[in-house]
């Protein structure tokens, strides 16, 4: 699907088919969950990142269903580049009303970055001032998990992680996504 066509689809679905919820409610709720995790794991940010990713993964497993239903896509993406287009311009658009920029492809077409010019989760956020969070916590890590879970349900095993975040003082917020493999359809075990 051409890039502009994906944009139009995203725009259209977001406008007409998505139930909206107050943005501040989402921001505050997500922020509070991160705070709670930091408390629960005693500021072990590596573990917090892991938990956020896991929560996202469980969301992604289900969210893909909603994505497919709402976007009404019937055709498979023909390659990983097309998948990236659909993630950025349809997926992120319809669920968060943002369109991250796709960039930094590797030449084999298996790795790309999403650069977030805006990140609704990060509104009013300051990382803990303990000298470690700035280096260890990936605040929006839930998004990595969401992608991993959602793509797994459509036969793609991917790895996703943030490599920079404006909350840490970086210039950009960038997520790196790598295709590990296409998962073969496995036949269910035969009944005797």
């Amino acid at each position: 699907m051409a890039s502009s066509k994906a944009s139009r689809l995203g725009e259209e679905v977001w406008k007409t088919r998505m139930d909206k919820v107050n943005a501040e409610l989402v921001v505050l709720t997500y922020g509070t969950i991160v705070v709670q995790l930091c408390k629960d794991f005693d500021s072990d940010y590596v573990e917090v990142n892991k938990q956020l990713d896991k929560m996202g993964y469980n969301i992604g497993l289900r969210l893909i269903e909603d994505y497919l239903a709402k976007s009404n896509t019937i055709r498979r993406c023909s390659n990983f580049r097309e998948t990236a287009e659909m993630i950025a311009k349809v997926g992120f658009k319809i669920f968060l009303n943002i369109t991250p920029t796709i960039t930094n492809w590797t030449s084999d077409g298996k790795q790309f970055s999403l650069v977030f010019d805006e990140n609704p989760f990060a509104d009013f956020v300051e990382l803990p001032d303990d000298g470690r969070a700035q280096d260890e916590l990936w605040y929006s890590n839930i998004l990595c998990g969401v992608l991993r879970g959602a793509l797994e349900m459509v036969q793609m095993q991917v790895e996703a992680h943030f490599i920079s975040d404006v909350l840490r003082g970086n210039d950009t917020t960038e997520m790196r996504i790598s295709l590990i493999r296409y998962i073969d359809d496995e036949l269910p075990p035969e009944d005797d």
Partner: peptide
């Protein structure tokens, strides 16, 4: 108790803003 606490913080924040 933790869930209630999460809600409490969200409620406080929402009211402050709205």
């Amino acid at each position: 108790w933790r869930l209630e606490g999460i809600g409490y913080r969200v409620g406080q924040g929402l009211v402050e803003r709205f």
